[in-house]
Amino acid sequence: MRKKVIVFLILFSSLFVTLPVVADIAVIVNTNNVTETMSVPDLKNIYNVRKSRFVDNSPIILSYQNGENEISKRFFELVVGRSMMQLNRFWATKIFSGRMLRPIKLADDQLVIQWISENTNGIGYIDVTSLTDKVKAIALISE
């Protein structure tokens, strides 16, 4: 009887515990990139085109995933501070004024990993559970 009460209490208390329903976001670069870590404000500056260079002065080429992807929605909300529509219009002013290279749109985590592993200047974001040793994580973001 006592055992049943304990199990019931554990199950009941679990109703009030907030469990992570979505995984963390990993920001990744090429394994040859000299960058080891990056803060959220730095990432915000990069995706808002205020910073366009890595620490070794090499150019940054942004990648992003489809705006409908859950990972994109969370990244834009937590890091960028603009919606996909706003960000694309903003990027257009930067691209067509010669201020930035066009960001690369990729469909999912696997394609981001593949593209980053082939581009030393690339930066992107994926679900942390997709992380492999083909790329280097420089930031982990969670709510």
Binding site: R89, A92, T93, F96, S97, G98, R99
Partner: peptide
């Protein structure tokens, strides 16, 4: 403000 993108109608 929009000199650089004045030809790009989508940008404004």
């Amino acid at each position: 403000l929009t000199s650089e993108t004045i030809l790009v109608g989508q940008s404004y």
